[in-house]
Design a binder for these strands. Sequence first.
DNA 1: CCATTATTAGAGTATATACTCTAGTGAGTC
DNA 2: GACTCACTAGAGTATATACTCTAATAATGG
Lengths: 223, 223
Amino acid sequence: MKTRDRILQTSLQLFNQSGERAISTNHIAAELAISPGNLYYHFRNKADIVYELFLAYQQQVDYYLTAPGSQPLALADLAWYLEAVFDGLWQYRFFHRDLESLLDADPRLRAGYGDFTGRCLSAINGIFNQLASGGIIAPRPEPLRSAMALNVWLVITNWVAYLKTAHATEEPAVLSLAELKQGIYQVLTLELPHVTPEYREPVLALRETYRPGTFCQAEHQSS
Amino acid sequence: MKTRDRILQTSLQLFNQSGERAISTNHIAAELAISPGNLYYHFRNKADIVYELFLAYQQQVDYYLTAPGSQPLALADLAWYLEAVFDGLWQYRFFHRDLESLLDADPRLRAGYGDFTGRCLSAINGIFNQLASGGIIAPRPEPLRSAMALNVWLVITNWVAYLKTAHATEEPAVLSLAELKQGIYQVLTLELPHVTPEYREPVLALRETYRPGTFCQAEHQSS
DNA sequence: CCATTATTAGAGTATATACTCTAGTGAGTC
DNA sequence: GACTCACTAGAGTATATACTCTAATAATGG
């Protein structure tokens, strides 16, 4: 693998592990067993590394979220979307952790993230629409639908922080993918009151899949 | 005012303005026009300042949230709670910004914050109960009620970050108290499906009070 | 083979940070 | 007036951070 990609990969891993704040460029170079000069040959500065990671994050989420157009969605599609989003969230979880500092340090990132949020919100809104077409949730008028989408977004983007700050017993706060997926339980809780009567049972069953306590000694993984 | 209190006050102000990460003890001392040595006479280290600010935050929120026991609540009480919580959030907004780093740096804080979150969640849960007694929302069985409370918490604690990262057009991202209060709109959106038919109209009216765009050139304030 | 270019090492720099140490100053007390 | 003691100034330290510079070493293409 090219050094440049190894730098990105290792940075992502260390950032996810300890937060961007705690990981210096020297740390990254040391972990890779390369010189600081080498790192700075490939990236002008630390912000450029972060920005490139953001682009990858954005590309991945956009890919999964901007797919389907406007055909009706089935329940399985909803599950698939949620899984995809939470996977992305997990892979780039460092990003939401120090978000404000990162945006303060890089105007490109601030602008890019603003657009990204906007796209995510309308994607969620669109999914609500398609779920309504599919008869899974009741159709809601526009101002309400947007507010619902925003609540989903707020729950999703805050879930990792909640786990690491409120729930964690261990000091460095290691998380499992299974715990992360409990966020899906929360999102489905959010949508539950809007589910049509005929789909209530299936949605409840899907939601049960992710219930806290259901996670059967899932394997821990660190990146 | 005693120097010790001035240090706390100024730290809070600077932290809220620029984030704990960007504010050094030297910055705080300079802003107060005192020497670094003086600051370190009053506080053993930076983490002690943060911890003391957390205690004040905690005390304030606990005071407003652990009040009423279990009598039924009226709609005005709900509004009052929400206002109180968002005021606290605003006053100590630096705290949720760099939360993970802060907890990583201070085990006391990690433990204290874990308990704090737990108390807030059961307070929210209790308020749901009392709103049900008051006939405002439909009573919900326990596992659901806790999940709802958690969603409310996630929305509340992520609201400021959302405003500063997704919404902000200005670079240093100045926020108004009115924008902040739009978070109440989001929380009421969350509760709306659970409101009883007879209270639906009043809750919608209350919610309208906080609608985005309704904020009539509210005065900006920086701390 | 040579010339060019991409890549790397490694020492080094300027700056900032959290924090310490010594030497006071001023207000009260016996 | 000597003594204490809370408080303060200000210079200073050890360390880390982001980043630079020079020079050496691969790769590569003609």
